[in-house]
């Protein structure tokens, strides 16, 4: 084995990565776009209170000084008041669910409209009615729960990082090597003293290095934009991502061991990638899924990577607490490496 030969092949592979402008940008942009997309979608869908239309009012902002509405109703938190010039405009908005409740404020007793089918309208009506009832002593005892809320983003972020690593490993090793086998690059390399072991080691190391590099760049960017919170230790998290990267890369190596058909390999890649994407809890939790689905997910390395990473990031687990998942990642790596080395062929 020659370290020098591994090193030059490692360098050559890295050149390709950094010079392939299109793929290079995509590698970083893809996870960002997903995270940004979800931040926007979920930011907008967060509970934003109820919208109460009020007329007549010449402006959107309502002057409450001379209305018939009780103070208690006006000051309810999570109620947003919007002014309309007349009843017709208000009713139209109500019918289109753009407001939940409509009140006329220039009559001695207020007149109000709500949509029969709207649960929000019903809740606003209850608030409205109770605002006219004098204040009682509060019933029951209230306890405030303190603590950081875990945003969906905090839960999703490790999922996106892991998914990016998975695609990078499967395509960057599996697909690329098969393409090189097909177009004769591997044959050209076979004609040199380079051994299969040296070549594949260089591919794996290069991909691992690039995964970690990408992860760090994406992490820094996401942290600046959305302030990512890590409850546990960064060192433990790095170990988990490193093991995850190695195991996904070794799956890529196994796929790269044989084959000269790019079509077949991209099919095989999707066949592996899609189950991991949905069963390894990248996007959503498998809580409540049938037992056999959960059992199957245990076979996938991404499942263990994400479970361990989330446990550390969200719950502050230590490395010892995620050692089971780490062991699973190590075992996957070893199995895939041994199989890949046994099956490897330069030619077909």
């Amino acid at each position: 084995m020659s370290l020098k030969r591994i090193w030059v092949m490692f360098k050559a592979r890295n050149y390709e990565f950094f010079r392939d402008k299109a793929a290079f940008g995509w590698n970083f942009l893809f996870p960002f776009l997903i995270i940004a997309g979800f931040a926007i979608i979920f930011g907008g869908r967060d509970f934003s209170g109820f919208k109460v239309g009020v007329f007549p009012s010449t402006t959107k902002q309502i002057d409450f000084t001379s209305t018939n509405l009780p103070e208690k109703f006006i000051t309810t938190t999570h109620l947003e008041f919007i002014g309309f010039p007349d009843q017709a405009t208000g009713l139209k908005k109500l019918k289109h669910h753009q407001i939940d409740f409509l009140i006329r404020i220039d009559t001695p007793t207020p007149l109000y409209w709500q949509l029969d089918s709207s649960p929000k309208g019903y809740l606003v009506e209850r608030l409205f009615q109770s605002a006219f009832v004098p204040e009682n002593n509060p019933y029951g005892t209230k306890e405030i729960v303190e603590g950081r809320e875990i945003r969906y983003l905090d839960w999703l972020f490790p999922g996106i990082l892991g998914m990016n690593m998975m695609f990078s490993a499967l395509w960057g090793v599996g697909y690329v090597v098969v393409r090189y086998r097909k177009n004769g690059v591997l044959k050209r390399l076979k004609a040199t003293p380079l051994t299969a072991f040296e070549y594949m080691t260089a591919q794996a190391l290069s991909r691992f290095f690039l995964q970690i590099f990408t992860l760090i760049v994406v992490w820094i960017g996401a942290d600046l934009l959305f302030s990512i919170h890590v409850e546990g230790s960064l060192v433990a998290l790095s170990v988990v991502f490193a093991l995850g990267g190695l195991s996904l890369t070794s799956v890529g190596l196994l796929l790269a061991a044989r084959g000269t058909s790019e079509e077949f390999t991209s099919g095989a890649l999707n066949f592996i990638a899609w189950p991991m994407m949905f069963l390894s809890e990248v996007w959503f939790s498998l809580e409540g899924a049938p037992q056999w689905v959960k059992g199957f997910a245990e076979v996938l390395p991404l499942t263990h990577l994400l479970r361990a990473a989330r446990h550390i990031m969200n719950d502050g687990a230590t490395l010892a607490q995620v050692s089971g998942d780490c062991l699973a990642l190590i075992i996957t790596t070893l199995i895939c490496l041994v199989l890949g080395a046994t099956l490897f062929s330069w030619n077909d």
Binding site: K4, R5, W7, V8, M9, K11, A12, Y15, E16, R19, D20, Y180, N183, G184, V185, K187, R188, L189, A191, T192, P193, L194
Partner: peptide
């Protein structure tokens, strides 16, 4: 060996290619 049908590594210059292959030999 010069093959009839081979491609070279993507995104390398001629110089990179020569240097890479030279480094594979003693």
């Amino acid at each position: 060996i010069q093959f009839q049908h081979t491609t070279l590594l993507d995104f390398l210059t001629v110089r990179n290619t020569l240097e890479t292959f030279r480094a594979l030999y003693r």
